[in-house]
Protein backbone atom coordinates (compact mmCIF):
# COMPACT_ATOMS: atom_id res chain seq x y z
CA UNK A 1 0.00 0.00 0.00
CA UNK A 2 2.90 2.36 0.74
CA UNK A 3 4.28 1.88 -2.76
CA UNK A 4 0.88 2.68 -4.29
CA UNK A 5 0.74 5.83 -2.17
CA UNK A 6 4.23 6.84 -3.31
CA UNK A 7 3.41 6.39 -7.00
CA UNK A 8 0.11 8.29 -6.52
CA UNK A 9 1.84 11.17 -4.73
CA UNK A 10 4.42 11.30 -7.52
CA UNK A 11 1.64 11.66 -10.15
CA UNK A 12 0.07 14.50 -8.18
CA UNK A 13 3.40 16.29 -7.80
CA UNK A 14 4.23 15.86 -11.48
CA UNK A 15 0.83 17.25 -12.56
CA UNK A 16 1.25 20.27 -10.31
CA UNK A 17 4.83 20.97 -11.39
CA UNK A 18 4.06 20.45 -15.07
CA UNK A 19 1.63 23.35 -14.61
CA UNK A 20 -1.11 21.31 -16.23
CA UNK A 21 -3.37 22.00 -13.28
CA UNK A 22 -2.54 25.66 -13.50
CA UNK A 23 -3.41 25.87 -17.19
CA UNK A 24 -6.70 24.08 -16.73
CA UNK A 25 -7.54 26.11 -13.62
CA UNK A 26 -6.84 29.32 -15.56
CA UNK A 27 -9.13 28.07 -18.32
CA UNK A 28 -11.81 27.39 -15.73
CA UNK A 29 -11.46 30.83 -14.18
CA UNK A 30 -11.86 32.45 -17.58
CA UNK A 31 -15.05 30.48 -18.21
CA UNK A 32 -16.46 31.31 -14.77
CA UNK A 33 -15.77 34.99 -15.28
CA UNK A 34 -17.42 34.73 -18.68
CA UNK A 35 -20.49 33.19 -17.04
CA UNK A 36 -20.75 36.20 -14.73
CA UNK A 37 -20.57 38.56 -17.68
CA UNK A 38 -23.17 36.55 -19.59
CA UNK A 39 -25.34 36.47 -16.47
CA UNK A 40 -25.27 40.25 -16.25
CA UNK A 41 -26.65 40.67 -19.74
CA UNK A 42 -29.34 38.01 -19.27
CA UNK A 43 -32.23 39.48 -17.30
CA UNK A 44 -33.25 37.46 -14.24
CA UNK A 45 -31.33 34.35 -15.35
CA UNK A 46 -27.89 35.17 -14.01
CA UNK A 47 -27.88 32.61 -11.16
CA UNK A 48 -29.09 29.80 -13.37
CA UNK A 49 -26.54 30.61 -16.06
CA UNK A 50 -23.72 30.79 -13.55
CA UNK A 51 -24.73 27.39 -12.16
CA UNK A 52 -25.01 25.89 -15.68
CA UNK A 53 -21.71 27.26 -16.90
CA UNK A 54 -19.95 26.60 -13.59
CA UNK A 55 -20.89 22.92 -13.58
CA UNK A 56 -20.17 22.51 -17.29
CA UNK A 57 -16.74 24.12 -16.82
CA UNK A 58 -16.00 21.88 -13.91
CA UNK A 59 -16.86 18.83 -15.99
CA UNK A 60 -15.02 19.98 -19.11
CA UNK A 61 -11.78 20.81 -17.31
CA UNK A 62 -11.95 17.44 -15.57
CA UNK A 63 -12.54 15.65 -18.87
CA UNK A 64 -9.51 17.40 -20.40
CA UNK A 65 -7.35 16.37 -17.45
CA UNK A 66 -8.63 12.79 -17.37
CA UNK A 67 -8.06 12.29 -21.10
CA UNK A 68 -4.86 14.18 -21.76
CA UNK A 69 -3.00 13.37 -18.54
CA UNK A 70 -4.63 9.94 -18.27
CA UNK A 71 -3.42 8.66 -21.64
CA UNK A 72 0.14 9.70 -20.76
CA UNK A 73 0.15 8.15 -17.30
CA UNK A 74 1.86 4.94 -18.39
CA UNK A 75 2.67 5.70 -22.03
CA UNK A 76 4.86 8.68 -21.10
CA UNK A 77 6.92 6.58 -18.69
CA UNK A 78 7.55 4.09 -21.48
CA UNK A 79 8.24 6.76 -24.09
CA UNK A 80 10.85 8.59 -22.01
CA UNK A 81 12.22 5.23 -20.75
CA UNK A 82 11.98 6.20 -17.08
CA UNK A 83 10.04 2.94 -16.73
CA UNK A 84 13.30 0.93 -16.93
CA UNK A 85 14.70 2.28 -13.66
CA UNK A 86 11.32 2.29 -11.97
CA UNK A 87 10.31 -1.30 -12.74
CA UNK A 88 13.77 -2.51 -11.73
CA UNK A 89 12.79 -1.48 -8.20
CA UNK A 90 10.77 -3.93 -6.10
CA UNK A 91 7.41 -2.43 -7.06
CA UNK A 92 4.78 -4.76 -8.51
CA UNK A 93 3.42 -3.68 -11.87
CA UNK A 94 -0.14 -3.70 -10.57
CA UNK A 95 0.96 -1.41 -7.74
CA UNK A 96 2.41 0.95 -10.33
CA UNK A 97 -0.82 1.00 -12.39
CA UNK A 98 -3.11 1.40 -9.38
CA UNK A 99 -0.85 4.12 -7.94
CA UNK A 100 -0.92 6.01 -11.23
CA UNK A 101 -4.71 5.79 -11.32
CA UNK A 102 -5.23 6.91 -7.74
CA UNK A 103 -2.74 9.75 -8.26
CA UNK A 104 -4.60 11.18 -11.22
CA UNK A 105 -8.04 10.68 -9.67
CA UNK A 106 -6.72 12.50 -6.58
CA UNK A 107 -5.36 15.32 -8.74
CA UNK A 108 -8.69 15.68 -10.55
CA UNK A 109 -10.59 15.52 -7.24
CA UNK A 110 -8.37 18.30 -5.91
CA UNK A 111 -9.10 20.39 -9.00
CA UNK A 112 -12.86 19.70 -8.82
CA UNK A 113 -12.89 20.63 -5.12
CA UNK A 114 -11.13 23.95 -5.77
CA UNK A 115 -13.51 24.81 -8.59
CA UNK A 116 -16.55 23.82 -6.53
CA UNK A 117 -15.43 26.09 -3.72
CA UNK A 118 -14.98 28.93 -6.23
CA UNK A 119 -18.45 28.29 -7.67
CA UNK A 120 -20.09 28.31 -4.24
CA UNK A 121 -18.24 31.47 -3.24
CA UNK A 122 -19.52 33.19 -6.34
CA UNK A 123 -23.07 31.98 -5.64
CA UNK A 124 -22.80 33.18 -2.03
CA UNK A 125 -21.82 36.61 -3.30
CA UNK A 126 -24.85 36.64 -5.64
CA UNK A 127 -27.14 35.59 -2.80
CA UNK A 128 -25.76 38.36 -0.64
CA UNK A 129 -26.56 41.01 -3.25
CA UNK A 130 -29.96 39.51 -4.32
CA UNK A 131 -33.03 40.90 -2.50
CA UNK A 132 -34.93 38.25 -0.47
CA UNK A 133 -38.19 38.76 -2.35
CA UNK A 134 -36.45 38.09 -5.67
CA UNK A 135 -34.77 34.96 -4.32
CA UNK A 136 -38.09 33.60 -2.98
CA UNK A 137 -39.46 33.65 -6.53
CA UNK A 138 -36.75 31.26 -7.76
CA UNK A 139 -37.27 27.48 -7.86
CA UNK A 140 -33.99 26.65 -6.08
CA UNK A 141 -31.96 28.61 -3.55
CA UNK A 142 -28.94 30.50 -4.90
CA UNK A 143 -26.48 28.59 -2.74
CA UNK A 144 -28.04 25.21 -3.32
CA UNK A 145 -26.47 22.21 -1.52
CA UNK A 146 -28.27 20.11 -4.14
CA UNK A 147 -25.58 21.19 -6.60
CA UNK A 148 -23.23 18.91 -4.71
CA UNK A 149 -25.10 15.92 -6.14
CA UNK A 150 -24.11 17.03 -9.63
CA UNK A 151 -20.53 17.73 -8.50
CA UNK A 152 -20.24 14.29 -6.88
CA UNK A 153 -21.48 12.57 -10.02
CA UNK A 154 -19.11 14.63 -12.17
CA UNK A 155 -16.30 13.39 -9.89
CA UNK A 156 -17.47 9.78 -10.34
CA UNK A 157 -17.74 10.27 -14.10
CA UNK A 158 -14.18 11.64 -14.25
CA UNK A 159 -12.86 8.75 -12.16
CA UNK A 160 -14.42 6.35 -14.65
CA UNK A 161 -13.09 8.32 -17.63
CA UNK A 162 -9.60 8.28 -16.09
CA UNK A 163 -9.83 4.49 -15.88
CA UNK A 164 -10.74 4.35 -19.59
CA UNK A 165 -7.75 6.57 -20.47
CA UNK A 166 -5.40 4.49 -18.29
CA UNK A 167 -6.67 1.29 -19.87
CA UNK A 168 -5.82 2.50 -23.38
CA UNK A 169 -2.54 3.97 -22.14
CA UNK A 170 -1.23 0.57 -21.03
CA UNK A 171 -1.19 -1.03 -24.47
CA UNK A 172 -1.26 1.73 -27.06
CA UNK A 173 2.10 3.24 -27.94
CA UNK A 174 0.52 6.36 -29.46
CA UNK A 175 -0.77 9.04 -27.08
CA UNK A 176 -2.88 10.53 -29.86
CA UNK A 177 -4.55 7.19 -30.57
CA UNK A 178 -5.20 6.61 -26.85
CA UNK A 179 -6.72 10.11 -26.52
CA UNK A 180 -8.86 9.52 -29.61
CA UNK A 181 -10.09 6.16 -28.31
CA UNK A 182 -10.83 7.59 -24.85
CA UNK A 183 -12.73 10.55 -26.25
CA UNK A 184 -14.58 8.19 -28.60
CA UNK A 185 -15.66 5.98 -25.70
CA UNK A 186 -16.69 9.10 -23.75
CA UNK A 187 -18.86 10.44 -26.57
CA UNK A 188 -20.45 7.04 -27.22
CA UNK A 189 -20.95 6.69 -23.45
CA UNK A 190 -22.80 10.01 -23.37
CA UNK A 191 -25.16 8.56 -25.99
CA UNK A 192 -25.42 5.16 -24.29
CA UNK A 193 -28.99 5.65 -23.10
CA UNK A 194 -30.12 6.45 -26.65
CA UNK A 195 -28.14 3.52 -28.03
CA UNK A 196 -29.72 1.07 -25.59
CA UNK A 197 -33.18 2.15 -26.76
CA UNK A 198 -32.28 1.99 -30.44
CA UNK A 199 -34.83 0.22 -32.64
CA UNK A 200 -34.33 -0.63 -36.28
CA UNK A 201 -36.02 1.73 -38.66
CA UNK A 202 -35.54 -0.65 -41.55
CA UNK A 203 -35.19 -4.45 -41.66
CA UNK A 204 -31.65 -4.62 -40.21
CA UNK A 205 -32.26 -6.24 -36.85
CA UNK A 206 -28.57 -7.16 -36.66
CA UNK A 207 -27.55 -3.52 -36.79
CA UNK A 208 -30.08 -2.67 -34.09
CA UNK A 209 -28.72 -5.48 -31.92
CA UNK A 210 -25.12 -4.30 -32.39
CA UNK A 211 -26.04 -0.68 -31.55
CA UNK A 212 -27.93 -1.78 -28.43
CA UNK A 213 -25.03 -4.03 -27.42
CA UNK A 214 -22.61 -1.10 -27.76
CA UNK A 215 -24.97 0.95 -25.62
CA UNK A 216 -24.83 -1.72 -22.91
CA UNK A 217 -21.08 -2.37 -23.02
CA UNK A 218 -19.68 1.18 -23.09
CA UNK A 219 -19.57 3.08 -19.78
CA UNK A 220 -22.95 4.81 -19.36
CA UNK A 221 -21.61 8.35 -19.04
CA UNK A 222 -25.10 9.69 -19.74
CA UNK A 223 -26.18 8.43 -16.31
CA UNK A 224 -23.83 10.88 -14.59
CA UNK A 225 -25.32 13.97 -16.21
CA UNK A 226 -27.81 15.41 -13.73
CA UNK A 227 -26.67 19.01 -14.12
CA UNK A 228 -29.88 20.32 -15.69
CA UNK A 229 -32.11 18.52 -13.15
CA UNK A 230 -30.13 19.89 -10.22
CA UNK A 231 -29.97 23.45 -11.56
CA UNK A 232 -33.71 23.51 -12.39
CA UNK A 233 -34.64 21.72 -9.17
CA UNK A 234 -36.81 19.23 -11.01
CA UNK A 235 -37.24 16.40 -11.32
CA UNK A 236 -35.66 15.89 -7.90
CA UNK A 237 -32.58 13.67 -7.92
CA UNK A 238 -32.70 11.20 -5.01
CA UNK A 239 -29.48 10.44 -3.07
CA UNK A 240 -30.12 6.73 -3.77
CA UNK A 241 -29.62 7.43 -7.49
CA UNK A 242 -26.36 9.21 -6.74
CA UNK A 243 -25.23 6.29 -4.57
CA UNK A 244 -26.09 3.64 -7.15
CA UNK A 245 -24.36 5.57 -9.90
CA UNK A 246 -21.22 5.80 -7.74
CA UNK A 247 -21.36 2.02 -7.17
CA UNK A 248 -21.66 1.54 -10.95
CA UNK A 249 -18.66 3.83 -11.60
CA UNK A 250 -16.61 2.07 -8.91
CA UNK A 251 -17.31 -1.39 -10.35
CA UNK A 252 -16.65 -0.35 -13.96
CA UNK A 253 -13.47 1.61 -13.08
CA UNK A 254 -12.17 -1.30 -10.94
CA UNK A 255 -12.65 -3.68 -13.86
CA UNK A 256 -10.83 -1.31 -16.22
CA UNK A 257 -7.93 -0.68 -13.82
CA UNK A 258 -7.73 -4.44 -13.17
CA UNK A 259 -7.62 -5.03 -16.94
CA UNK A 260 -4.97 -2.33 -17.35
CA UNK A 261 -2.87 -3.91 -14.58
CA UNK A 262 -3.21 -7.36 -16.18
CA UNK A 263 -2.16 -6.05 -19.61
CA UNK A 264 0.70 -4.03 -18.15
CA UNK A 265 1.97 -7.01 -16.14
CA UNK A 266 2.42 -8.96 -19.35
CA UNK A 267 4.20 -6.18 -21.24
CA UNK A 268 7.85 -6.42 -22.19
CA UNK A 269 10.10 -3.39 -22.44
CA UNK A 270 12.52 -3.71 -25.33
Amino acid sequence: MRRIRLVAWHVFKESVRDRVLLAIAAFAVVLVVASVLIGQITAGQDVKIIKDIGLATLELSGVLMAVFIGVGLVAREIERRSIYSLLAKPVARWEFVVGKYIGLVGTIAFNVTLMTVALFLMLAYLQWKTPDEVERAWLTPVVDPGLLKAVILIGAELALLTAVALFFSTFSSSGLLSAGLTLGVFVVGLLSEDLRGFTAVDSSQVLAFVVRAVGVVVPAFSAFDIKADVVNGRPPVPWAYVGLTIVYATCYASALVGGAAAIFSRREFT
Binding site: R17, R80, R81, Y84, S85, A88
Partner: peptide, 11 residues
Protein backbone atom coordinates in the same frame (compact mmCIF):
# COMPACT_ATOMS: atom_id res chain seq x y z
CA UNK B 1 20.02 -1.20 -12.33
CA UNK B 2 21.38 1.63 -14.43
CA UNK B 3 19.78 1.58 -17.89
CA UNK B 4 21.61 2.83 -20.96
CA UNK B 5 21.08 6.60 -21.46
CA UNK B 6 18.98 6.98 -18.31
CA UNK B 7 16.06 9.41 -18.39
CA UNK B 8 14.18 10.50 -15.29
CA UNK B 9 11.54 13.01 -14.23
CA UNK B 10 12.49 16.54 -15.21
CA UNK B 11 10.47 18.18 -12.46
Amino acid sequence: FLPEHPVFYDH
